[in-house]
Design a protein around this nucleic acid. Sequence first.
DNA 1: TTGACATATTCCCATGCGGGCATGTATTAT
DNA 2: ATAATACATGCCCGCATGGGAATATGTCAA
Lengths: 122, 122
Amino acid sequence: MPRAATTSDAFNAVAEPRRRAILSYLALGERPVGDLVAALGLEQPSVSKHLRVLRDVGLVHVRRDGRRMLYRTNAEAIRPLHEWSSQFERFWRHQLRRVKERAERKSSAEPSRIGSQAKEET
Amino acid sequence: MPRAATTSDAFNAVAEPRRRAILSYLALGERPVGDLVAALGLEQPSVSKHLRVLRDVGLVHVRRDGRRMLYRTNAEAIRPLHEWSSQFERFWRHQLRRVKERAERKSSAEPSRIGSQAKEET
DNA sequence: TTGACATATTCCCATGCGGGCATGTATTAT
DNA sequence: ATAATACATGCCCGCATGGGAATATGTCAA
């Protein structure tokens, strides 16, 4: 089996930097394809293809407005990503604490003390 | 240009479900490759290859212990993912609110209607 | 209708993937 | 030194991909 299709889930769809850019841009409101082409400096067919992928995964919604197509980001579809990565939040918080503690030990040994930001919970 | 390399960044590396599983598993502590093979039910070469990708992107750290290699997740490398997706947090919060409001309006207005999705919100 | 405009789809191509399997390398045990 | 253990790497394969260029579809205007 080759690599999973980009349309298989949000993780694969979002792996493309340009698709992430599109999502950020379309999060602010409905925009036609032409705006994306202008804003991101990509070829129109390229943008349409990326939008197709994003649509297939439900990351964007479309609506026709005359001869234009208005796209907007469906933030809800990004949640799985956010929740998955949240799983590790506590770990990097711990790492931060460790780094800070080490810095404090060091500065308490040395005469010159600098800013000692205390908190950051467990 | 083909699809970006899986080793190009955390987004691409994490697009693989098995690699996500590996990261979750290795977040709890250092584990040798054999444990992963047993826990995830994958072929050993497959696990090694996935670990190779994760290493190249800095998502895991390794340490040799005799003939074993102990891997652990580097949560810090997952932060970019979390922060990117956080950008959309406010939007799905708003959507939730809208959904709730609509549900409330609906239940107070209509006694009991079914499948009457009017049109698509603002 | 014809034409302009906005967007979507198709075709061709080079590339990097993940699986399977075999083999290579490092370390400990005998 | 040899064998066994624990991983890593190499090779072959089918295949989805993203870019480019051309073309198709759909909608409005004259």
